[in-house]
Amino acid sequence: MGNSKLYKGSLNTIILKLLSEHDKMYGYEITQKVKALTKGEFNITEGALYPALHKLEAEGLLDVEVAKVDNRLRKYYKLTETGTKETVNKLSELADYIKTMQSLVNPKLA
């Protein structure tokens, strides 16, 4: 895995972005999706993922649905209306951040 500290600051945005592309997702599914998309470069630990999910839920950006799957209960997360709007803002902030970093680190590409 690369520098996890650099990714950590964007964890909420990553979660919101993934949920905006799926109707609903559960914790383990999110970790696997991120792992697959980044080809194993970014591995979200449960110690980071679930607190982030619970915080987003407490802020009203995510809604929760519980379903019985494979002999156990599974907690699914999905975006609320506020969450959908916040995703757009967060992605725009992240794009600006990437652009700024690009101009600092590699001005030719900016």
Binding site: T45, E46, G47, Y50, P51, H54, K55, A58
Partner: peptide
């Protein structure tokens, strides 16, 4: 390998629950 990470998650969850209650 993972117990400490899981229990750390438990502690953080309780903090979030307290915040939710206060709000």
């Amino acid at each position: 390998e993972n117990k400490s990470k899981l229990l750390q998650n438990n502690k953080k969850f309780l903090k979030t629950a307290d915040k939710k209650i206060r709000k």
